[in-house]
Protein backbone atom coordinates (compact mmCIF):
# COMPACT_ATOMS: atom_id res chain seq x y z
CA UNK A 1 0.00 0.00 0.00
CA UNK A 2 2.80 2.38 0.85
CA UNK A 3 4.22 1.94 -2.65
CA UNK A 4 1.00 2.70 -4.49
CA UNK A 5 0.38 6.11 -2.95
CA UNK A 6 3.35 7.94 -4.54
CA UNK A 7 2.69 6.00 -7.73
CA UNK A 8 -0.85 7.29 -7.91
CA UNK A 9 0.36 10.79 -7.19
CA UNK A 10 2.86 10.45 -10.03
CA UNK A 11 0.14 9.41 -12.39
CA UNK A 12 -1.92 12.43 -11.44
CA UNK A 13 1.05 14.68 -11.96
CA UNK A 14 1.66 13.19 -15.41
CA UNK A 15 -1.97 13.71 -16.38
CA UNK A 16 -1.94 17.31 -15.20
CA UNK A 17 1.32 17.99 -17.02
CA UNK A 18 -0.13 16.56 -20.22
CA UNK A 19 -3.23 18.72 -19.82
CA UNK A 20 -1.16 21.86 -19.22
CA UNK A 21 0.99 21.12 -22.27
CA UNK A 22 -2.08 20.56 -24.43
CA UNK A 23 -3.56 23.87 -23.27
CA UNK A 24 -0.32 25.71 -23.93
CA UNK A 25 0.14 24.26 -27.42
CA UNK A 26 -2.73 26.27 -28.89
CA UNK A 27 -4.40 25.64 -32.23
CA UNK A 28 -2.67 23.78 -35.02
CA UNK A 29 -0.74 26.03 -37.40
CA UNK A 30 -0.32 25.97 -41.13
CA UNK A 31 3.35 26.95 -40.85
CA UNK A 32 5.46 23.87 -41.35
CA UNK A 33 8.61 23.28 -39.30
CA UNK A 34 10.84 23.40 -42.35
CA UNK A 35 9.66 26.91 -43.20
CA UNK A 36 10.72 28.44 -39.90
CA UNK A 37 13.69 30.73 -39.64
CA UNK A 38 16.47 29.84 -37.23
CA UNK A 39 16.52 33.34 -35.74
CA UNK A 40 13.54 33.52 -33.31
CA UNK A 41 13.25 37.31 -33.54
CA UNK A 42 13.10 37.18 -37.34
CA UNK A 43 10.66 34.27 -37.19
CA UNK A 44 8.42 36.27 -34.83
CA UNK A 45 8.41 39.16 -37.31
CA UNK A 46 7.62 36.73 -40.12
CA UNK A 47 4.67 35.33 -38.14
CA UNK A 48 3.29 38.80 -37.38
CA UNK A 49 3.64 39.88 -41.00
CA UNK A 50 2.15 36.75 -42.50
CA UNK A 51 -0.84 37.04 -40.15
CA UNK A 52 -1.79 40.31 -41.83
CA UNK A 53 -1.37 39.14 -45.43
CA UNK A 54 -4.35 37.67 -47.19
CA UNK A 55 -4.19 34.29 -48.85
CA UNK A 56 -5.44 35.08 -52.37
CA UNK A 57 -6.77 31.58 -52.91
CA UNK A 58 -8.85 31.21 -49.73
CA UNK A 59 -9.63 34.85 -49.32
CA UNK A 60 -10.68 35.09 -45.71
CA UNK A 61 -7.60 33.43 -44.30
CA UNK A 62 -4.19 34.91 -43.79
CA UNK A 63 -1.21 33.20 -45.38
CA UNK A 64 -0.19 32.30 -41.82
CA UNK A 65 -3.39 30.24 -41.42
CA UNK A 66 -3.77 28.79 -44.88
CA UNK A 67 -2.63 25.46 -46.20
CA UNK A 68 -2.94 26.55 -49.81
CA UNK A 69 0.16 26.03 -51.94
CA UNK A 70 0.34 29.71 -52.84
CA UNK A 71 0.15 30.69 -49.15
CA UNK A 72 3.06 28.39 -48.44
CA UNK A 73 5.07 29.89 -51.32
CA UNK A 74 4.35 33.38 -50.03
CA UNK A 75 5.35 32.43 -46.47
CA UNK A 76 8.66 31.09 -47.73
CA UNK A 77 9.19 34.14 -49.94
CA UNK A 78 8.37 36.49 -47.06
CA UNK A 79 10.95 34.77 -44.84
CA UNK A 80 13.53 35.02 -47.60
CA UNK A 81 12.90 38.76 -47.87
CA UNK A 82 13.24 39.21 -44.11
CA UNK A 83 16.41 37.12 -44.03
CA UNK A 84 17.78 39.29 -46.85
CA UNK A 85 17.30 42.34 -44.61
CA UNK A 86 13.97 43.79 -45.82
CA UNK A 87 11.98 45.91 -43.38
CA UNK A 88 8.35 45.00 -42.62
CA UNK A 89 7.18 47.82 -44.86
CA UNK A 90 9.38 46.66 -47.71
CA UNK A 91 7.85 43.18 -47.45
CA UNK A 92 4.33 44.65 -47.43
CA UNK A 93 5.22 46.71 -50.48
CA UNK A 94 6.66 43.65 -52.22
CA UNK A 95 3.29 41.97 -51.80
CA UNK A 96 1.09 44.92 -52.76
CA UNK A 97 3.09 45.58 -55.93
CA UNK A 98 2.13 42.10 -57.07
CA UNK A 99 -1.30 41.56 -55.58
CA UNK A 100 -2.65 45.06 -54.84
CA UNK A 101 -3.94 46.42 -51.55
CA UNK A 102 -6.31 43.46 -51.38
CA UNK A 103 -3.46 41.31 -50.10
CA UNK A 104 -3.38 43.38 -46.91
CA UNK A 105 -5.96 42.15 -44.43
CA UNK A 106 -5.80 45.61 -42.83
CA UNK A 107 -6.48 48.10 -45.63
CA UNK A 108 -4.24 51.19 -45.68
CA UNK A 109 -5.71 54.51 -44.53
CA UNK A 110 -5.99 56.80 -47.54
CA UNK A 111 -8.72 58.99 -49.05
CA UNK A 112 -10.41 56.07 -50.86
CA UNK A 113 -10.67 54.14 -47.61
CA UNK A 114 -11.68 56.99 -45.28
CA UNK A 115 -15.32 55.87 -45.50
CA UNK A 116 -14.30 52.35 -44.54
CA UNK A 117 -12.13 53.42 -41.64
CA UNK A 118 -14.12 56.35 -40.25
CA UNK A 119 -17.63 55.59 -41.57
CA UNK A 120 -18.72 53.48 -38.58
CA UNK A 121 -17.43 56.02 -36.06
CA UNK A 122 -19.12 58.82 -37.99
CA UNK A 123 -22.41 56.89 -38.07
CA UNK A 124 -22.17 56.22 -34.32
CA UNK A 125 -21.40 59.89 -33.61
CA UNK A 126 -24.35 60.98 -35.74
CA UNK A 127 -26.62 58.54 -33.91
CA UNK A 128 -25.34 59.65 -30.51
CA UNK A 129 -25.92 63.27 -31.45
CA UNK A 130 -29.48 62.47 -32.50
CA UNK A 131 -30.24 60.56 -29.31
CA UNK A 132 -28.68 63.25 -27.15
CA UNK A 133 -30.75 65.92 -28.83
CA UNK A 134 -33.91 63.87 -28.48
CA UNK A 135 -33.44 63.34 -24.74
CA UNK A 136 -32.32 66.88 -24.03
CA UNK A 137 -35.45 68.18 -25.68
CA UNK A 138 -37.61 65.79 -23.63
CA UNK A 139 -35.93 66.68 -20.35
CA UNK A 140 -36.46 70.35 -21.07
CA UNK A 141 -40.18 69.54 -21.15
CA UNK A 142 -42.49 70.79 -23.75
CA UNK A 143 -41.29 74.18 -24.76
CA UNK A 144 -43.99 76.75 -24.28
CA UNK A 145 -45.68 77.24 -27.55
CA UNK A 146 -45.99 80.62 -29.13
CA UNK A 147 -48.99 82.53 -27.79
CA UNK A 148 -52.16 82.05 -29.72
CA UNK A 149 -52.82 84.40 -32.53
CA UNK A 150 -55.98 86.51 -32.49
CA UNK A 151 -57.54 84.22 -35.05
CA UNK A 152 -56.75 81.10 -33.02
CA UNK A 153 -58.18 82.71 -29.85
CA UNK A 154 -61.37 83.45 -31.63
CA UNK A 155 -61.63 79.90 -32.95
CA UNK A 156 -60.98 78.53 -29.46
CA UNK A 157 -63.71 80.65 -28.00
CA UNK A 158 -66.24 79.48 -30.53
CA UNK A 159 -65.25 75.90 -29.85
CA UNK A 160 -65.58 76.36 -26.10
CA UNK A 161 -68.99 77.83 -26.50
CA UNK A 162 -70.15 75.12 -28.79
CA UNK A 163 -69.10 72.41 -26.33
CA UNK A 164 -71.89 71.37 -23.98
CA UNK A 165 -70.87 71.79 -20.35
Amino acid sequence: MAATAPNRRGRWRAALTALALAAAAGPALAVEPGERLADPALEARARDLSAELRCLVCQNQSIDDSNAALARDLRVLLRERLAAGDSDDQVRQFMTVRYGDFVLLRPPVRPETYLLWFGPAAAAALGAFGILRFFRRRRGGITPAAPLSAEEKKRLETLMEATPR
Binding site: L56, V57, A69, L70, D73, L74, L77, R98, Y99, G100
Partner: peptide, 13 residues
Protein backbone atom coordinates in the same frame (compact mmCIF):
# COMPACT_ATOMS: atom_id res chain seq x y z
CA UNK B 1 8.82 25.22 -61.77
CA UNK B 2 9.01 26.93 -58.38
CA UNK B 3 6.26 29.46 -59.17
CA UNK B 4 8.38 32.51 -58.36
CA UNK B 5 7.81 34.22 -61.70
CA UNK B 6 4.10 33.47 -61.29
CA UNK B 7 4.14 35.37 -57.99
CA UNK B 8 5.91 38.27 -59.72
CA UNK B 9 3.04 38.31 -62.22
CA UNK B 10 0.53 38.36 -59.34
CA UNK B 11 -0.79 34.92 -60.25
CA UNK B 12 -3.07 33.50 -57.57
CA UNK B 13 -5.00 30.87 -59.44
Amino acid sequence: EDGRVGIDWGVYG
